[in-house]
Design a protein around this nucleic acid. Sequence first.
DNA 1: AGCACGATGCTCT
DNA 2: GAGCATCGTGCTT
Length: 205
Amino acid sequence: MPDPGLIPPKGHILPRTFYARPTLTVARELLGARLVRLLDGQRLSGIITETEAYIGEEDLGCHARAGRTKRTAVMYGPPGHAYVYFTYGMHWCLNVVTEREGFPAAVLIRAIRPIEGIEVIAARRKGRDTDGPAKLTQALGITGTENGLDLCTQASGLWIEAGEPVPDEAVTTGPRVGLNNVPEPWKSIPWRFRVQESAWRADPD
DNA sequence: AGCACGATGCTCT
DNA sequence: GAGCATCGTGCTT
């Protein structure tokens, strides 16, 4: 088994300055980027094809609507870190913290298209897809252990690399998913970003 | 292809 | 105690 520290990143690791910007910008630009997970010394990765923005305590769809709690503490921290939360009694979801320290905001990664470690991902998913926030964390072995990790260093075993930009024509927006009891305008505000895979496909490697 | 439902336990009121 | 940023199954069209 190779020393994980000796495996060079294939692409450019997105720096903290990428995340330290408006959350909607980050959510849009994460489309087409490559989410990389080092698991048992092996690179697993996928192209990000769906994201959602959660922005501040005013956003009643955001976990930070209740203010700073044990769960939301990471969102109040510096940008470029992983916010991983547990939900529905069995699922983990991965977010990346955005904006500035002290302001709670994050982007939920909702779907990836597997690129590296296809066999491992297929086995972990029992052949099912990776087009859901809890599906991709299961595929990549991401749980509460990864909460708070710095995504700007390879040492975390979890990071995001720059990818091929996705043109606007291939991106659709819409309301965020699953906010059934959230009041307007937050319930319907179009902070969900999706790649139409029929309209765009990145060159894998 | 679409909808209804149960699983399962943490978080905050 | 209620609700949850979900998923997979099974049943209906």
